[in-house]
Nucleic acid binder design. Sequence first.
DNA 1: GTTAGCACTCTCGTTTAACGAGTGCTAATT
DNA 2: AATTAGCACTCGTTAAACGAGAGTGCTAAC
Lengths: 343, 343
Amino acid sequence: MLTGRQLLILQVIIDDFIQTAQPVGSRVISKKEDISFSPATIRNVMADLEDMGYLEKTHSSSGRVPSEKGYRFYVDNLLSPQIAPDDINVIKHVIQDGIFEFEQIVQKSAEVLSDITNYTSIILGPEVFETKLKQLQIVTLTPQTAVCILITNTGHVEHRAFSIPTEMSSSELEKMVNILNDRLQGVPILRLPEKLNTEVLSLMRMYVNDFEKSFDYLKAAFFNEHPVKLYFGGKTNMLMQPEFKDIDKVRSFYTMMEREEEIADMLKATTDGIKVTIGHENKVDAIKDCSLITATYHLGEEQMGTIALLGPTRMEYKKVITLLNALSNEMTEALYMWYKNND
Amino acid sequence: MLTGRQLLILQVIIDDFIQTAQPVGSRVISKKEDISFSPATIRNVMADLEDMGYLEKTHSSSGRVPSEKGYRFYVDNLLSPQIAPDDINVIKHVIQDGIFEFEQIVQKSAEVLSDITNYTSIILGPEVFETKLKQLQIVTLTPQTAVCILITNTGHVEHRAFSIPTEMSSSELEKMVNILNDRLQGVPILRLPEKLNTEVLSLMRMYVNDFEKSFDYLKAAFFNEHPVKLYFGGKTNMLMQPEFKDIDKVRSFYTMMEREEEIADMLKATTDGIKVTIGHENKVDAIKDCSLITATYHLGEEQMGTIALLGPTRMEYKKVITLLNALSNEMTEALYMWYKNND
DNA sequence: GTTAGCACTCTCGTTTAACGAGTGCTAATT
DNA sequence: AATTAGCACTCGTTAAACGAGAGTGCTAAC
């Protein structure tokens, strides 16, 4: 257990380091407003904190730097949740300002988030799977090719072109679309393949001649790959951080940022609420000296997606957590508004 | 005018430097297979080439490095166009391998191009304006909101959600869509706004009650912003180039890469055929030590888009030019196939 | 318990020296 | 007359040496 003085000094050190990125020495601390001890006293305290593992030295006679354990303690115990500042109004404004598509909201949110914080933001888009099919349309481009369009109740549109088997007439095609719409409207996207195989398959076999080949095309076109959508903001912000001054780190960081599946998996694994993952707590090597802060957004009880901020371990945790909290709420609300309208 | 020997040595120097990224000295050259002069002779020639501005020294007693003028001469006169290697088969394969959407072809091309070359590729998507409207659909999500979907003859799909004026009934909406489709099918996207204002406006006023407000919505939804699409490949490849070892260059480079309009303008300005822009020939500051190689792809006589490769001035011009040539042809052909089918 | 004082440690920037790669010039060679 | 060998010279790179500065840990005094 830490004494009050230890807590105070730990907090001051971390706050200072977060701002300056420089090891902080006893002299600097003694000059702070709310500190009334001499440098020597502070040195003693710092030595204790180091023994306990909350602080580190970069070399034997340098100032102290927070260890990961220190950061962990800091976010767990030393963060007085503060009422968020103007930034939250900015967020509100962006989210509600005459945007009609959820995708746009998400993209804008990612941008705003990175602009405000100067870190890199990643948002895991709302799971398409959870949304329901509103309508399915096939538009023929030529006798051989057509584009299939799938509209969800959220206003999301997916499309894929495919080629029509030569044996199939256009009336046949139309019949097929009708059956599909009749049977599949309102079905969650996630269930589509299953539903397609059970109910619809037999029906089609009955009414549509030679449907099988085009059916395959359709299935291949839509259900093979359903990549989760990631929205990024401020990808270059990391370059501005002093901890990324050497090129090798930059390389490995950006190489990682291109492995979207990996990132998506990481974000999917997040549980409810705000979660802070510091340094080596991260499983991914390339961000072992970064912190990842995630929050989720919801529809009702159900978790729909994840918002994340990625920065150096020396992050402005207080600001960022408040902000993420706010954004999470705003997005949840925006999502709710959507679904209220679009059942 | 350069003598044969000067030509030979200039070529060898540039070739070597392109490979090693190190200033090349007289000794190294004398060791090359097709060189039969002593280092001293070569030094004399190099001094001449330097006087003429084709070579530079990084400092007074270093080996020589090609100047921009040197590179310019190299690409203009020293590049024996060579038959392309296996890479071209890779390209062919990627482009023709069961892809049905032109966008996909473009995206894949960008990726392949950067993978093969280890540079950054940028492709300016086919101008949406040139394509024609195939069909227009409006799907209502709720009584208040709908999503408008626009399908072009190329299989390209655009969509935008908008809100329905409360006064408008669904039958009214349907009537509107019918009129729009009736009048606008086959019209080039570029002409839509104009056509909308002339022919369709009066017609709508006649048949649809209270159409004006939703008309505004529609127009706003579709025709405000029509950003040109850029496709990137290998954005991180630049980090691997030794000339990008200092972080400031990296910063300014990636900051530039985010200004998509600027890049688009740059690529739009390209004329027909392959064009090489070396170093300071580039207007954009952040790539004053890069070379940009562009090629165009076509539909019939008409230029549709631009393929570009961005790398350090020390680029493998020969390989890259051959490759870009091939890709340009492949894309033109693919585009032609598209349009042949999708008039 | 706190603090002043001091010796000690380590980094950082500067200086110095040695080394090596490469040049330019001159004189000898072909 | 062209080519080349030889040599002095230049400059970047690396390593070692050094002083200054920041900060610590410890001891002794308050």
